[in-house]
């Protein structure tokens, strides 16, 4: 008998409004463990907001969210999760930002150690060991003692990925991780993400790198105006989009490299 496999992430009816602007209208989304989901769409489509809702950096107005064992209901009659609950929830998801957001007053090593040290209460020796291991993994072992200001954009983003991985998250969220990079630095970051995907990490990636999405993602979701227009296997959505809106958006990109 086949046991029905429960998705890792459940999103039901998520809605978000900033002032008069409705950014997310009614988002339903399921992500299976180990799946790599690419969120694509024009700017202002709500894909970054959706990603931020997934780790509560933005609190949805309505809807339900479940990741693993943690679930939340938003809207009238439901209480906002407290700071403590939010924090422990976020510690189980890793987030990588467009502008890296490394801590400039700490060395690269300290940046990666910060989460395990302050959130998990890991010992300094252990945290350092873990951090060195992760820096080696993203190819930056020799930069451990540098300050972020002395790194290139691509190196900064790889440190940011190591920092997120140091919390040993079960899901990684990437918010336009390569959009702020010079073109020649994009590849090194994509390579790290590709490796992570291969290791079976559950990943949700907001990206404009359509070719990368096609190659690495198992599922592609096209969003516009706060709704999911189309979703499906990456090759299908990108090579044979069913919707006109998807087709017209994709026509701006060279999808085969």
């Amino acid at each position: 008998m086949n046991q029905p496999v429960q998705p890792k992430i459940n999103v039901r009816g998520i809605r978000k409004q900033f002032g008069d602007l409705i950014v997310l209208r009614h988002i339903d989304l399921d992500v299976m463990a180990g799946e790599v989901v690419a969120l694509i769409g024009p700017s202002g489509s709500g894909k970054s907001t959706l990603l931020r809702c997934l780790n509560l950096l933005t609190i949805p107005d309505n809807g339900e969210l479940r990741i693993g064992e943690d679930s939340f209901v938003f809207g009238k009659g439901s209480r906002l999760p407290g700071a403590k609950v939010q924090a422990s929830f976020r510690s189980r998801t890793g987030m990588v930002f467009q502008h890296f957001n490394l801590f400039p007053h700490m060395t690269v090593l300290q940046n990666v150690m910060e989460g395990p040290l302050t959130v998990k209460g890991m010992s300094k020796t252990k945290a350092q060991e873990l951090a060195n291991q992760l820096l080696a993994k993203v190819g930056l072992a020799e930069k451990a003692q540098e300050y972020p200001d002395f790194l290139s954009g691509g190196q900064k983003q790889r440190v940011a990925i190591a920092r997120a991985l140091a919390m040993e998250p079960s899901v990684m969220l990437f918010d336009e991780a390569t959009s702020a990079l010079d073109p020649e630095l994009v590849a090194e970051v994509l390579q790290v993400m590709r490796d992570l995907a291969r290791e079976g990490m559950t990943m949700i990636i907001v990206t404009h790198e359509i070719a990368f999405a096609r190659e690495v993602a198992s599922k592609v979701i096209f969003m516009r105006d706060g709704v999911i227009v189309e979703q499906g296997p990456a090759l299908q959505v990108i090579d044979q989009p069913a919707e006109e809106a998807t087709r017209s958006f994709l026509s701006h990109f060279h999808t085969r490299s």
Binding site: K84, T118, V119, A164
Partner: peptide, 9 residues
């Protein structure tokens, strides 16, 4: 946000 995303209070 980076601090919060790590799970810091």
């Amino acid at each position: 946000e980076a601090g919060l995303a790590l799970g810091m209070r």
